[in-house]
Design a protein around this nucleic acid. Structure first.
Lengths: 221, 221
DNA sequence: ACAATAGTGTCTGTTAGACACTATGCC
DNA sequence: GGCATAGTGTCTAACAGACACTATTGT
């Protein structure tokens, strides 16, 4: 790694982190965007982001945590690195590097933020005009989420501590964009074996006239 | 992204790229490492890497290309971003960011390099003492390669322009670490449909007494 | 003919999905 | 009982893997 003289080690590269605030509402996968209040791209929709503070942040994950908390007001359930975007062209000012993180907000505690505006993620990736290369980043996120929904506990991150199987399935379908048969979904869950029922705890929404659903949680270990 | 005053935009963050030179030889997935000739970690095995030159490199991918070419001597068949590693602790000098790239060298043109020393990747990830957090990076690479071997053209990148199905299967097994039944492997390939035989072109190694194998290539489009 | 590897045909156990059925809550 | 949703049983068609078979080369 150390190939260049010390004089080169202070670079003029912009080091930033962008977060993709994500949630599932009413069966739709949504992303929270902000309207930029500064140049460049003033007034344009963008991912929330910020410079890495090498004095405050211990690493880029910590920077993502700081930015997510600051923009969303609540603690993020799960942060996961998506990819890093860079180039001399992507920021009109100069060469920039941005490490992008998926920031998953669970249905447990609603985001209360005046800054964030929520959009359907796949629409944002296809139709919205976003600042920098943020549209590309959103498109990559769609891919990643669909790919990992099946064989990881990602869906449960969106759900929160406790969840019902119909609720989890709704999240799964929002992430993949595909409907699944109820039986198939539950069988796969059974096989993976990372969920367990909370004995005797049921979920019945306000004024809903139907059989209540068994509440589950992630197994520890 | 622009939240801080201009004075903060020149950071003292070390921006680097690390490449993971990868190849398959005799059914083993190997990684090429260098022995560092400078501090920190002088004399220790490490991934080849270098600082991002914001004047020469158009982005981190270009930087990875430059470094791969420089260390390996030949053109790399495929470069793919793995992840980004960062922190105030990982480099003893100061806060550093490193974007890691998988650099796949095909069996078409052998790497001729005095600098690179080749190790079994999974052993390197488990047993070798490497500089910085390079051991973690190698472990992540093992995961990524095993995961993507099945449903992408990754194996074909290792093979090169033209390949035989037995050869491709050997690569697949090296990446996943698992044997596959010949029938299953070929059926999957058939279903995915991204390979096609080159009519009439066969492969017969020097002095091998056996039926020759049909040579294939990737379909365009 | 034989050794060695390429490539195929077929059988069988497993799995995904459709669909119909039962269960349980509130009115 | 009726409605709505939760959860299960079962059948079928597709698929994966094992294994044995055929094919093609050089000696």
């Amino acid at each position: 790694m150390a190939e260049t003289p010390d004089s080169l080690q202070f670079s003029s590269i912009l080091c930033t982190v962008d977060v993709l605030p994500l949630r599932v509402r009413e069966g739709r996968l949504e992303i929270g965007l902000v309207r930029r209040d500064k140049a460049p791209f003033k007034g344009v929709l963008a991912l929330p982001g910020g410079f890495i503070r090498d004095d405050e942040d211990s690493d880029t994950l910590a920077a993502a945590h700081r930015i997510a908390k600051q923009k969303a007001g609540v603690e993020v359930a799960h942060l996961e690195q998506l990819a890093t975007y860079s180039g001399r062209q992507r920021d009109p000012r100069r060469f920039s590097i941005s490490v992008a993180y998926l920031a998953i907000f669970s249905q447990d505690n609603e985001v209360q933020s005046k800054e964030l505006v929520w959009f359907d993620l796949s629409s944002a990736a296809r139709e919205l005009k976003l600042a920098f290369d943020h549209q590309t980043i959103c498109a990559d996120a769609v891919q990643r989420l669909a790919g990992k929904a099946g064989y990881t506990t990602l869906c449960a991150q969106f759900a929160g501590e406790e969840f019902t199987l119909p609720g989890l399935q709704e999240i799964y379908e929002a992430l993949t964009g595909q409907p699944v048969s109820k039986k198939t979904f539950r069988r796969r869950l059974e096989d993976l074996g990372w969920a367990e029922p909370i004995e005797g705890k049921m979920y019945q929404p306000e004024g809903r006239v139907s059989r209540p659903a068994q509440i589950h949680r992630l197994k520890q270990k």
